[in-house]
Amino acid sequence: MAANRGYNSTSAGTRLRLIEAASEILDEEGYPAFTARRIAGRAELKPQLVHYYFRSMEELVVTVFRRSSASYFRLHDEALSSARPLHALWDLNCNIPEARRMLEYVALGKIYPALRDEMRASGESFRALQIEVIEKVCAQNGIATPPMPAAVLATMMSALARSIVIESNVAMTTAHREIRDYIGATLDLYEPG
């Protein structure tokens, strides 16, 4: 059997078109439309090319997720490097780009174990960075006994922001303002001013 050069191609324009088409499909149509035929159609390519450039649909979705994760990491890094990193992180997570796609990744994670593993590793990495920054903020501001442990605050911020994003997708906004106000006031205890 001849080697398939497309699998190892990382800079091919066609491969990139497929990745972008897969991202658009997830954003606009959701995980049920994540098929080789639909993605190739969106990219205006033949369906066979999906499997030329990716060994499986699992490999494609992991590639798309890694691209999203890298994009979020840049924004996450900017937030954590800002003057008020906890406030910036909260704002980022409440207004996360590609929020719709994140829900689709969760659904696809039930189908594709490699995606689930990638999501777990990425999430744990982000959480560790957040905990580290919360601890650093406490140390810089002389907070010996913070209102809540760093791991609890990081998890609470993430979970509440995720709920706001998910509920906003279905136009539910009840108590969102109150949650934002509460988290803002809580973060002011860590980052006054």
Rank of each mutant, 00 (worst) to 15 (best):
A21R: 02
I166M: 07
R162A: 08
C94W: 04
H51L: 00
M1S: 13
Q48D: 11
M148Y: 09
L115V: 07
T173K: 05
S122T: 15
F34W: 02
E29R: 13
E20D: 08
E124V: 04
T35E: 10
M148I: 14
L89A: 13
P192D: 00
R101Q: 11
S11E: 15
V64M: 03
K136C: 04
G41F: 01
M172I: 14
S71F: 10
N93Q: 15
A139R: 15
I19L: 15
Q48A: 08
L49C: 05
I19P: 08
Y182W: 15
A88L: 11
T173P: 03
V64L: 04
S9G: 05
A43T: 05
A83Q: 13
M1R: 15
R5G: 06
S23M: 06
L92K: 09
A99K: 12
G142I: 06
A99V: 03
G109I: 00
L160F: 15
A36Y: 07
E167Q: 11
A79W: 12
E178P: 01
I111T: 14
Y31H: 12
A40D: 03
A114L: 11
I96D: 01
G13D: 06
A40M: 03
Q140N: 12
G184L: 00
R66W: 08
S168T: 14
R120T: 14
C138H: 10
A151H: 07
E135T: 12
D27T: 09
I25M: 11
I164G: 00
A12Q: 12
M157V: 07
S81Y: 00
L60D: 03
D91F: 02
S23A: 10
E28N: 14
Q140T: 11
L75R: 13
Q48E: 12
R120L: 10
L108Q: 01
K136F: 05
F54N: 09
H51I: 01
I96T: 13
V62P: 07
D91Q: 11
E44M: 02
W90T: 10
G184E: 04
M148Q: 14
C138S: 12
